[in-house]
Structures are given as structure tokens and as C-alpha cells.
Design a protein around this nucleic acid. Structure first.
Lengths: 154, 154
DNA sequence: CTCCACCCTGTAGTCACTACAGGGTCAAGC
DNA sequence: GCTTGACCCTGTAGTGACTACAGGGTGGAG
């Protein structure tokens, strides 16, 4: 790609709102691009790649701070290997959790579609796919008070 | 689990803020629980399972509307198979996309850790893992105007 | 009874976008 | 050259999804 992009073209290419692109520039996630004589932003392939990354990692549930971390890996290639390793390891753990959860949810939805193929849905365990029993959550602390009916007219 | 949970216990069990739980109740994502004589909310295992599901699917990047859709699958088991199938199919497609992206990102981060193990980072392709070339984005439309230097004193 | 952790409702603030207003730019068509 | 409509600019305000805080009530240990 040799010709620069307008913000509208970049927005279309990445399924992103124009305002969002300007927002990302404002918060420093995207470098400010050059400008045309008419003061239009002029983006290049580096911006396209970077914005695409941002959007897709956001779509995967990564916070902007986490995205910033990952971009930092790319921005500072010659940096200290120890910290690169630590960042990578931390995000790998999160990625593995997400993959496991998605795989579990996928299995349940597939099962649901199989049941639909058989003409009826008897057993839907979608909630259980991402329920508390599939993760190492802390054991819940029980409510010691006796449950009473809801107060009238509170 | 036979004893009910306080909101604080539920919050701890699901790594959720108390205010968030009340918010979810307010928007109808969580059913309102019974109350104690002291007007404390009293949650049961159904709430725990449901909230866990909500939080983990949020963490995977699903919008609240998508979460609502998925919960609806569970809430209305006897519903029309055609619409169950359509919802499941749509969400399966999204899940597959997310798994593919996470797997791609995982590969790059693994590669980075391998390079770190070798003592230096020569090649970081994290951005490319989720860049525009790995998805079928529309071809970008080029900026026809000539790029000029940024206007002074605009 | 006191104290402190916890709960309640309601209001306001933060983060991550997103829409809109008012005005400028670009280029096709006449 | 003028008109028109799509597009761009900056700045402000609004929305969705939380999250913090205020003022007051509850529960239980000491």
C-alpha cells in the first residue's frame, strides 16, 4: 500500500467508528498521522495494522491497558528480555483461560444444535459451561441469617 | 449448597463488585433474590451459576445483549427449535472467530517467549497476529489527495 | 452498649466508546 | 466557476457498563 488512507477508509477497513479512531489517537493508542493540505488525517499501513490489532484484541475482551501492554511488546523490540517474558507469560495465561472457556461454551452450543437437529431441546447446559464449578473460584461463604419473605412496603 | 449467600459473598465468589451485581439485577440480567428479615439479599446456587456465566462471558468480550441471548437459550428450554438453532449458530460463528484469534495471538506470544529463552528478541509479530491480513476485511480505499506537511498554527 | 464489617438505596463518576453540532474540504457534475 | 453532497475537522455531550461514594440500617462479637 503506497497511497495514504482517509480516516473514513481506515474506519471501514477495521469496522471502527471514526470517533473511536480519533479517541484512540487522543489516548495515545494510535500515533497521530500526517495531514493533507486540507488538514485531513493521512494514515498508512502501520496505522491500519495497529488499529486492526487494537479492535480485534478489544473484541476478545482485553482491556485497553492490556492492549497497551501487548503493543508495547512490539514497540520496544530491543527491551529487557525479563520483562518481555513476564508480560508474555501473564497474557498467555489469560489467553489460555479464554480459549478454554470458549471451547467449553462452543461444546454446549454444538450440543444444543445437535438436539435441535433431533427435533427437541431437552438439556441446555449453556450456563454450566461457564459456571462456577468449571473454575477455581473461592468457595462461597454462606449467609448465616435466616431468609425471610421480602418486606412489604419498604 | 443449602445456605443462602449475602451479596458480598456472591461478589467474592465471582470476582464481581457488589454494585455490579445490583446493576445486573436492575437491568434484569439477574433475577431479584429473596431477602432476609434485615432486608439483605439472599442468593442461592442458581444466582451463583448465572452470575458466574455472565462474568465469564463478559470477560470473553460478549456484549450484555449477547449474554442475554445466551441466557435466554437456557431460560426457555422448550422454545422453538428454529430460533434456538439460529442463535446458537450465530454465536458459534463468533466463538470460532475468537478462538482462531486467540490461538493466533497465543502462537506469537509463545514465539516471543522462545526468543527470550534464546536471550534476545529479534522478531515480534504480535501486531500481525491480529492484523488486517488475517481477516477478510474490505480492501482499504486509498486517499487520493496528496499528503502535505501538518498545517502550522491551525 | 459499642464497634466494625456488612448491607441498603440512590446519586454521581469513570471508562470506552459514540453521536452530534457547526463549520471547512473535496471532487463530480452542470 | 458554481452547486451539491459526501467527507473531514474540533469540541461537546450522551450512552452503556460498570464503579465509587454518601447517609443510614443490620448483625454479631466483645
Amino acid at each position: 500500500m503506497r497511497q495514504p488512507l482517509t480516516i473514513g477508509a481506515l474506519a471501514k477497513a477495521t469496522a471502527t467508528k471514526i470517533e473511536t479512531i480519533r479517541y484512540y489517537e487522543k489516548i495515545g493508542l494510535l500515533p497521530a498521522p500526517g495531514r493533507t493540505a486540507g488538514n485531513y488525517r493521512a494514515y498508512d499501513s502501520v496505522h491500519l495494522a495497529r488499529l486492526s490489532f487494537v479492535r480485534r484484541s478489544r473484541d476478545l475482551g482485553f482491556s485497553l491497558d492490556a492492549v497497551r501492554d501487548l503493543l508495547r511488546l512490539n514497540d520496544q523490540k530491543r527491551r529487557d528480555c525479563a520483562s518481555v517474558g513476564a508480560i508474555a507469560r501473564e497474557h498467555l495465561a489469560e489467553i489460555d483461560r479464554k480459549i478454554a472457556d470458549l471451547t467449553s461454551l462452543r461444546r454446549e452450543l454444538q450440543g444444543l444444535m445437535t438436539q435441535c437437529g433431533n427435533g427437541r431441546v431437552d438439556d441446555c447446559r449453556v450456563i454450566e459451561a461457564l459456571g462456577p464449578s468449571t473454575a477455581g473460584e473461592a468457595p462461597p461463604k454462606e449467609l448465616k441469617a435466616r431468609v425471610a419473605p421480602k418486606r412489604a412496603g419498604r
